[in-house]
Amino acid sequence: MGGDDIIEVRGLEHVFDGFTAVRGISFTVRKGEIFSFLGPNGAGKSTTINILITLLPLQKGTVRVAGHDVAQEPGRVRESIGIVFQEDVLDRDLTVWETMEFHGRLYSIPRDERRRRIDDLLRVVELDPKRNERTKNLSGGMKRRLQIARGLMTRPKVLFLDEPTQGLDPQTRMRMWEYIRQVNKTGTTIFLTTHYMEEADMLSDRISIIDDGRIIVSGTPDALKNTLGEDVVYLETEDDGKARETLRGVEEVRSIKESPRGLSITISTDGSHCLPRIVERVRGAGIGISSVNLKKPTMDDVFVHYTGRELRDTTG
């Protein structure tokens, strides 16, 4: 493992009353990247994150976060990380400012420095006008932003985000993604768990797909999708049968299926390069084309490919 790994997990296992939640996983997170744990609810994501942030005792394996062993030096780990919990973990009757002040004091940040950071962060997450509002009066998005600001207050080396956009509306989610990217740009490593595929896809430098307590596959979003090598071209023509004949013998075409809504052509390489030739060939044979569609594999397809199940189905 290189010196650039900020999180190193080896052979991590965790059992709750006879139920094995995590079955021997190993992974590393590099300094400065956004790393996602993608998987359905109950896959072991939260258990893993709770061990990494020292809320659950380590049972088996080794875990180092920001250069410190979670079992040997939990205090040093706690000083180096920030956390945004899955649910809204806010005291309803404290104001926005008091929430930040409380957190800063928990971490013994000196008063002047603390006040300065609170002002800065509240401006960044656009909650400055709400500083004297009690948290129970904030909208869902504001609560999340406040928790992100709180998690950043201690200038953590790693920020843990457990399902950061769960239950938020689409616009608010996009805003959250922007905030997360912004935070990452300032050098903070981000470890996030999510069961939203597009979230992992849009945000992450690297993803590990986790299911049933195991890491099934890891890689960059593009690499994961490309390993499937299955871009699909959907073609609607005047004569599907004839078009199908014409496309026989195109090297990259792996298979062609006819359906009432046209042809679905599975391509073995990058579909975007192959598509013009397919169109030229069908047109050249004098067959009119009414629609063309290229579908790249999604993280959902990746998940299905490796687990045989749809992620959407398992999350309910």
């Binding site: 020292t54 809320l55 205090g75 956390i83 919990f85 973990v89 806010l90 957190h103 928990l106 971490y107």
Partner: peptide, 13 residues
Amino acid sequence: NWGLMREMLASPM
């Protein structure tokens, strides 16, 4: 029950 304990337990305090 409100999860607030975790903020304190995960802090260096």
